[in-house]
Nucleic acid binder design. Structure first.
Lengths: 196, 196
DNA sequence: CTTTATACCACACATTTGTGTGGATGTCAA
DNA sequence: TTGACATCCACACAAATGTGTGGTATAAAG
């Protein structure tokens, strides 16, 4: 990605902040914010930013400014240049984007979350209080961690296993017993989130 | 929140999906999508949705539709009405919003991510391959899990401990030795994310 | 029967908005 | 000096856009 001038960065920052608030700016809103009296000036900036690869525009559509870099992408790093207080990243392994973190290509309606209760899955690194993002689906494969509905309407997170044509729920913690009783799979674990 | 009719929900869903793509629709775009031939029809729907508390509008501003409920909030559930294939949620404990999941009120520049390597923190439920969201800060309290920079520029995740005025890094896995050698804290763990 | 809410339509009108045209100034490298 | 680029301006114009006015029809509630 080409470097930006200070002013170009200011324009980009403004656009970024507005997009983060779910309403990209119009050309005249940018002009007002940056103190330009002409719309032509803004067009020049947008052209420059587009040419340098920072944004895309759908022409003749109001507010249709799309950022190329994910506005909320967070870099995943492995190594950091030593002695650098600014944390300039040495090795960036990739980026994570909050937006498609759980969803991937799923619709919001296909996903829900469960707060983990208890320690029956600690051996799988799933702790009490973790948030489990579940993709709704009535079936799962052997070994998948699933959200299952028990007789008392409680939702529980366990590993689904098949043995001799019988499905059962296996806790990762050996101190707990597998569940053979009536249960139904309601979804499959796709993400675990833990806040500190 | 008041209930919506089927058509009202369709309108809301369309708006929601467009906002998720960072460009709220215009009145005429809604009309086109839903098959209305009059802008007045859309205005009636927006009025209804606004009155029922699902959205807010800034008048005379193009595309200025703001959803009241987080557009990407995912419900956290504990119990589910039995025998309900639609998964109508019985108990909703809250919502998680991807946007402020790691950030909270932090700026994007204050945060980065590290991919966890190895099993030195398994006892803390942090597995190999997990993504750790780190808030940049040079200090942390006793017992905090921190990202630390080692001599070889490697970033590692350990628990920070103080003992007799000496700081050291303690793995959660007793098979590993604490680190007393030169290290510097670069940030504090705020979120763990694991994708399946 | 009247009222209220829902669910549409047509059309006009003032603003908002993107775009186009035509400049001007300064810097920096070739 | 020439050219590319960045940084601004004024102004015009067509298209997009939100809003207003005034309808029709149906169903449920009082």
């Amino acid at each position: 990605m080409q470097t930006l001038t200070d002013k170009q960065r200011k324009v980009l920052d403004f656009i970024r902040s507005r997009i983060a608030h779910n309403l990209p700016p119009t050309i005249r809103e940018i002009a007002r914010e940056l103190g330009f009296s002409s719309t032509g000036t803004v067009r020049d900036y947008l052209q420059a930013l587009q040419q340098k690869g920072y944004l895309k525009r759908s022409k003749a559509l109001s507010r249709a400014i799309e950022l190329t870099q994910g506005s909320l992408g967070i870099p995943i790093i492995a190594r950091i240049a030593a002695g650098n207080p600014a944390l300039a990243y040495e090795d960036i392994e990739g980026h994570i984007n909050p937006d498609d973190l759980f969803l991937g290509r799923l619709s919001q309606a296909d996903v829900f979350a469960v707060k983990v209760k208890g320690v029956s899955m600690v051996e799988a690194g799933i702790m009490d209080g973790d948030i489990a993002i579940i993709k709704k689906q009535p079936h799962a494969n052997n070994g998948d961690i699933v959200a299952a509905l028990l007789e008392d309407n409680e939702v529980t997170l366990k590993r689904l296993k098949y043995k001799a044509h019988t499905a059962f729920l296996e806790p990762a913690n050996p101190a707990y017993q597998p569940i053979y009783k009536d249960f139904s799979v309601i979804g499959k674990l796709i993400t675990i989130i833990r806040k500190y």
